[in-house]
Design a protein around this nucleic acid. Structure first.
Lengths: 247, 247
DNA sequence: TCTATCTATTTGTATAGACAAAAGCGGATC
DNA sequence: GATCCGCTTTTGTCTATACAAATAGATAGA
């Protein structure tokens, strides 16, 4: 039992995905689809608007709707908290806080983060293990002004990444993935060779244009990779249970 | 000049993003918003449906609409063709085809790709340079059964990645990002040290569950990184000019 | 020839009204 | 208490209609 607009959506989507309608091809005008599907224009419009919203077609007044140039290579990557990721994959996750101290932001780091030097920060270093083997080294800075409750949190039971996501709202995130060679200290902690290629994820999150946290997560290259499947068509169904209101 | 449904959308979005309405919070019922904005229910419905489509709220009949749990850490990563990327950044891009030969798929590679050994493939190796410096080594396999026109294409004027995107439809892609140490051959081509950390992107694309192409793109770690900004709210505006129809 | 204006077409937005589907809730019954 | 039934609320879909905005193409004018 599907609705009409959904059927129109899927019919057109299928023709685009299968290559029957190639990029640039003009999709029937709304009034033509109205005739074809025996429904009102609003219904057709809803279907086409959804396709446009999804980037599959482009619509221009007086001109028509066209199959969009292939959305070349934009992919959605799930970048999860390590503990969440390990759990999902059915692995065992543990972590150790190696360092936790409150200091003030030095000039160099401040510039790097785009913040004022002298701001009070919590600096954390944390070693994650999956199934007993070192899996990632986390170096984190938390701006205490943006997350004051971090001052008294010892992260004994919840790892900092997860804790922050639950406790501190953010509005923008920046991710950078790079490959670096392990320096001596990192190699020792990760139980790998010095110079070994490591996959580093850097994440900086902001709330109203002020940094909330900055973190580097360094994975040994032989034990970790990012992967994502991408179906250009798929809806992002991320049903999240609101069964009980948090009032 | 914004439409009403857009204003409703943005008002609610802003309250969610700022943390005024936390996850689990009940959003006013449609009829309440109708009163507040002095508009019809269809208009309110459009705004709320869009928010739901975007995953920011969850709607349940008879119950209401609720702010969704924070979409923790899903980020959209633009993984573009190298030449496109370079152009966008205003850099100069050139490439050399190092190898181009037609062979049959050996057993090991076939297993890796999930295809039948013995299939005819085009094997390519291509060195990309940006602003005159080696930037990436591309090792590609094209399944000739899925892209027969590749047989006669010499990729002299259009790099293989771009050519494939334009010419060959695909329905699914898989991306893997990993860090590896450069072996001797790779290091020489990329003009870097052996053992240097490299950022490798692997992409495999399928059409109707058969591989179209498989490619490894190896970047020197000191000259490349993946980066993406993520605003949980933002629409994915990928305006692509259809000015001239390709009929 | 070039420019400004008009016109027709297509999409975008909005409305009021209708009914359907889902689901919480209370009451009746066993 | 457990189960079923019907009531009510809220969202989901659809229609018919209307006008606005954009704009390609035609037309008129300089």
């Amino acid at each position: 039992m599907v609705s009409i607009h959904q059927r129109i959506f899927e019919d057109i989507e299928a023709r685009i995905m299968s290559g029957v309608w190639l990029p640039g091809h003009r999709i029937p005008f709304e009034h033509e689809l109205v005739k074809e599907y025996q429904c009102s224009r609003m219904t057709v419009n809803k279907a086409l608007s959804a396709l446009a919203e999804r980037g599959m077609i482009i619509r221009r007044r007086k001109v028509g709707s066209f199959v969009a140039a292939r959305q070349i290579d934009r992919t959605v990557m799930d970048i999860r908290d390590i503990s969440t990721e390990a759990e999902l994959a059915g692995h065992d996750h543990s972590y150790t806080i190696l360092m936790r101290k409150i200091e003030t932001l030095d000039a160099a780091t401040a510039t790097q983060l785009g913040e004022q030097a002298g701001a009070e920060i919590l600096r954390l270093q944390c070693l994650h293990a999956v199934d007993g083997k070192p899996h990632a080294l986390e170096r984190r800075i938390i701006m205490l002004a943006m997350a004051p409750s971090a001052r008294t949190e010892n992260f004994a039971s919840v790892p900092p990444g997860k804790w922050l996501l639950d406790m501190v709202p953010w509005s923008k995130a920046r991710h950078v993935i790079r490959a670096v060679s392990a320096d001596a200290a990192t190699a020792r902690l990760l139980e790998t060779e010095r110079g070994e290629a490591c996959l580093t994820l850097i994440r900086q999150t902001w709330r109203s244009s002020r940094t909330v946290t900055y973190v580097e997560i360094i994975h040994p290259g032989d034990r970790f990779q990012f992967a994502s499947d991408f179906h250009p068509t798929e809806k992002s169904v991320t049903e999240q249970l609101p069964r009980r209101s948090a009032t």
